[in-house]
Every structure is written in structure tokens, then in C-alpha cells.
Nucleic acid binder design. Sequence first.
DNA 1: ACCGGATGCTAATACGGATTAGCAACCCCG
DNA 2: CGGGGTTGCTAATCCGTATTAGCATCCGGT
Lengths: 358, 358
Amino acid sequence: MTTSQTSPRRITQRRIAELAGVSQATVSLVLNEKADATSRIPEETRDRVLQVLKETGYVADPAARRLAGLGNKIFGVFTYEPAFPTASQDFYAPLLSGIEGTAEELGCDLLLFTSAPVVDGTRRLLHENNRLRLADGCLLLGVEMDPDELARLVADGFPFVAVGRRDVDGVPYVAIDYTTGASELVGTAWELGHRRYAYVHVDSTGESVVDRRDGVIGELERRGGPAAASGLLAIPADGPDGATLQAAWQQVRASGCTVLVVETHETARRLRAMAEASGVAVPDALSMIVLGDAARPNGDANDFTRLSPPRTALASAATTLLARMLDPHDDVPEVELRQTLACPVMAGATLVAPEDAA
Amino acid sequence: MTTSQTSPRRITQRRIAELAGVSQATVSLVLNEKADATSRIPEETRDRVLQVLKETGYVADPAARRLAGLGNKIFGVFTYEPAFPTASQDFYAPLLSGIEGTAEELGCDLLLFTSAPVVDGTRRLLHENNRLRLADGCLLLGVEMDPDELARLVADGFPFVAVGRRDVDGVPYVAIDYTTGASELVGTAWELGHRRYAYVHVDSTGESVVDRRDGVIGELERRGGPAAASGLLAIPADGPDGATLQAAWQQVRASGCTVLVVETHETARRLRAMAEASGVAVPDALSMIVLGDAARPNGDANDFTRLSPPRTALASAATTLLARMLDPHDDVPEVELRQTLACPVMAGATLVAPEDAA
DNA sequence: ACCGGATGCTAATACGGATTAGCAACCCCG
DNA sequence: CGGGGTTGCTAATCCGTATTAGCATCCGGT
């Protein structure tokens, strides 16, 4: 794929120089407002050059600028999960929204690495001929990221920020404090009298998933000792497989739990439907707690008692952090390279005291 | 903003050349598999170079490749309306989805021109220091586009495709045949006996808007002569301004029309609510026709009789066309530079024969 | 032994812009 | 009138890659 730039003569600094009767270097100096002691350009010359620049509508070639060692205000965006079998679309939408909004404010363009090939079920950023270096820095999204790739980026000194906590040395990130949020929710349930919990969770080693699990289990152990956490029923349920979810629901029902903890809104919605279909009223017979929010605020009324992770703000903060890392005038202190945002709890209507409460 | 690439020594072809004991040119030749008569590289040398390439994990600098005149498989994406006050988000989501999916298949990256400044209410692609030239070609989205900018792009010979019909010479586009779709809908209504129409339309000169209007008015004139079209009540209603829409509804009601033609799903939803609130049953007392689809397939049940523009397919086709234009082996015939997709009609449940039908 | 042609590679240059060293002209001062 | 400083600019080089011209070397043929 070659550029079919057959246009007779692209406008370059050299061309501008010819028209203005100066050298290419002078044009560059005028463009970059270099008024060092070494290179002073008198008003007259400067105006003449500016005049020609205006007439021709000159625009610098970003590739050349980049090659010459300048930044070009482009942030790369990479998503580890393939973003467009529409399934994950709802997941990424608020993140991309936050990134785009902030990039617009910063006057940056975004380079989406849609070309990354899928290997072993996850996409590879560092494939041959990746266009990473075209960007000044990069934002990484995804539930799970390849630690080797992260380490390589760190080693190469390539500026990037992960959206979500990452357990790899030297990786800058902005995260959501799921642990505390999950703890709060479980703690509230405990205080209402709930003692028997079922927990339908996503089977993933992604840091955010682990954080939520830690929050749930940690809080139960704190409240009731190790025994309480054993009242916990862990059921992997990682997708929209109807049969799997039905089986999970049967287990939940058989467990005699009074409250059901679920990872995602979508799964919660379906489990609630199964519960109602089985004649189990929510929340009267069974309370429900959801550790995530609905993808869309509107949609079907979302009255789950739940966490509401600030995902747009998360992505926005990551973008801002990356911009700061790239700003040579801003020496970002080490501690700010790892940020954590609080995860608010939404009261909802699916958590009430258990029927058999003391 | 400079690149803080202080990494000791980036891996370049020159470095590879040193390690393999050959010249930089040889490395380039091996990389690009040039086996011309002029430059033959024996197996042995080639293997040695490939070995070093593999060991070092060399990746070509895309900026340098670009500067040297190669394409780099990057498609620019530009939206004329600011995409992220979330309002237009629903509008762009299916389009971006189509673009992303196709780009992924093609192995292309996407450069989102989020940095474009807003001037006079619309964004400018060709601002100073735009990064357009970094892309091989560009996709343009938006209800209204600046004809001057389009003409400039054509004149410069920059490869691009507009998503939606454009009335500017030499502009390649992929469009949706709104005119025929709107005609069909209005024709169906006519055959059911409707003679008095109200038409609440967006006040815009965007080609797609004009096409829909032409379809509605054209069909009425064909069916009932110029007189029929005078039975048409045009009411500008360009936004979510509640008062304006209320006024529009009052006019609609006073007009004694039997069928209401509306541009967008969102407006239709609100007008239906106003109708029901006024005791006017839809569709029994008032039929409704909508010239667009809901942003999200799910959401509130969408049973409007309506057009369902294939927007994802539209964007996908535009992306494919751009790829073909950039392929030097593919000499796209002139006629294929302007494509039109059919716009299917969804039967829905809001169009019935008028109460006073003969 | 010498010539023509292939083989295997490299030197040189282009791409467009940023930057630095430094040239030429002028001015001021002694 | 000559030396040192300033002013106004330019030539040259670099960034990393692609591409072309062409230099050695060897081989086969006569």
C-alpha cells in the first residue's frame, strides 16, 4: 500500500522558502518561533514568510516532525480484548468516551491499534510492524493484559498508562478501588443480618476481578472469621452460556443463601429472571448485590444494590496522567504514577434484611 | 511535547546491520523481501539478518517508513460534529463500530482526529498542524460537512471517503438511499388512506436530511399532485428543546393530520408521549412514521413503523472502499466511487388506516 | 589470458523538518 | 583603520527507512 500522492508538488518548507526568498532553515525557525540568541529573525523577514505560509496553507508533515524527534500529540489506544464483536462494546464505550473527551480538551489525536493480531485468544500490541512509535504515548485497556508486554514497554521506556490496576513493576496506572467498594456492600449486607452468601463470579485473573473477590471474601472473614467465608459459594460463570448460568442458579438455590453477590449487571439481570421464574422473589426471598453497573444508565430500570464504578472518569484520569508524563515541564512524582479512584455504592432496592433475620 | 526517548540506543536497521555484519541497505532489502534482479541476497546472509532481527525484536519506525513514501495502514477518522458531548454518541456508535470491525479485518489502525478545533460550531479538519498526512486515507463522518474542505481534499488528491452522500464534485462516498425509503413509507400510508400529513423535520441542509425530505414530499406530489404536498406541515424541530417540541405537537394536533412523519426515533418517542398525554391514541387516532431507527436495538421496545438505515454496514462499506482506493493493484472504476445502499423499512405497529378512511 | 555476464553486496541519496555551527556584513569603539 | 561584537541568515547534518546506481568478485567460455 503506497501513498498515491501524485499531486504535482506537495507544499514543503523548501517550497515555502523558495517563494519567500529565504532558506528552508529560516522557514523552520519562523514556524517554531525560535528567537534564541543564536537565531534572530527580523520582523520583516518573519512577516514575509508568514505571509507565504498563510497563502499556501502549509501544514507540516507529522511523519517528518516525528522523525526529527518531536512529539506529535497522538495518544495510542490499545484494547486487549477484541473490542468489536459488540459484546465488549458496552464495556469499552464509557472508557473510550472518557479518553476521547479528555483528548479533545488536550488537543490530541487518538491512534486506535485495531490492527493488533489475536494470538492465544488475546491481542498482541507488540507485533511486527506495530505503529506504536507513531504515538507519543499509549493507553492500555482490558481486563487482562500480557505482563510480558507490559514489562517490555517499561524496559523500553515507552510512556504508557494502564487503565485499571496492574501487578507489574513500574507500570503506571489509574485504578478503581473495587476492594473497598465490595467490602462496603458485603458489610452492609452483614449488618442487615445476612450470614449465608452465594457469589457468582467471573473466572478471571484480571486484577480488577481479583480485587472485587478480595473485597467480598476479605470482608466476610473480618466479620465472621474464616468460617464465614466458607459460607461462600463460588461459581464460575464467565459468559452468556445459558446452561451454565442455569446450573449456577440451581446451585445458588440449593445453597440456602439469603444474599447473592454477582459480578456483572448482565448476569445479575438474567439470574434475577431465573429467580423470579423459580418463584423466588427478589429481594424479599433473596437479596442481590451487584459488583458492577449497567453498561447504559437508561436501558431497563437498574434498581440493583450495586457498585457504580466511575469508568468514564477512570479513563479520563488515565489520559490526563499520560499527558502529564509526556509534558517535559511536568516532573510527575513517582507516587502519582499509581492512582486509585473511589468506587461509589448505589443503594438500589435489591438488598433487604433476610426473612429469617434475628 | 518532545519524546523522552532516553533509551540508550533504539533498535534501528543500522544497529541490526552492525550486529549482522552487513549494510543497512541489506537489512532493508531482507525486510522487504526484495528479490529483484538488481538485488539478490543469498540464503545465508538473509538468514543471518533474520536471526538478528528476531533476537532484537526489531520493529520499523512507522514515521520513517511514511517519510520514505510508504503507506502505513492507518485510516484517519474525522467527525464533523463534536462526537463527545455524548449526545451524538449514539449517532456515531454504529458507524464507528462498522469502521473498527472492517479496519480490524484489513489489519489497519485508526487515527481519530479528536484534536480538530471547533470553529463556527463545526469542527475543522484542515487546521494548522493537523495530522492528516499520517494516515493513508481518511473517512469523514457527519451530517453536514464543509464543502470547501472537501473540495480542498479533492484538489490535493488526498484519498478519502465520505460516509453519506455529498454534493461536491469528485467526492467519493457511500450513502443510504433515504429518498426511496421515505417514499415507500409515505406511499404505504397513502395507500392505507392517509391524506393529511404532518412532518416534523430537522432543520438542516445536510444531504441525508434533504434526501429524506425529498422522499416524503416527492411521494406526496406523485400521489396527489402539488396539492397533496401542501397538505404537509413542516415544523422545524432540531433538538431536545422541550418547549419547541410542545409547540410542534400543538401545531400537529391542530392540523387535523392523520399521520405524523418524524425524522428521528428520539423525537418520535417524545411526540408519542405528548400525544398519549393529550389523549390521542397512537396509532388509532394518529399514525406515526419515523425516518430513522433507535440508536440501540434493545432499549425501550421500538415498534414504530420506520426506516432502519444500515449504518454499521454503511460505515463498513466506506472503509472497504477506502481500502480499495489505496490499493495500487485495484483500479477502482469511477462509478464505484459513489455507492448507495438500500434503506429497509420496518413494519412496526404505528401505521394503520386512518379512522375516517373511505 | 581475457572478456562478458552474473552474483553479492554497499554507498549514496531522497523523504521533510529541526537544529546547530558558522559565515558575511555591519556597527561601535579605540 | 582594525578588532570585537552583534545581526541576519544559511549550509550542513540528523532522524530511520527505501531505493537505485554501481563497485568488486567470481565464473564460464574462447
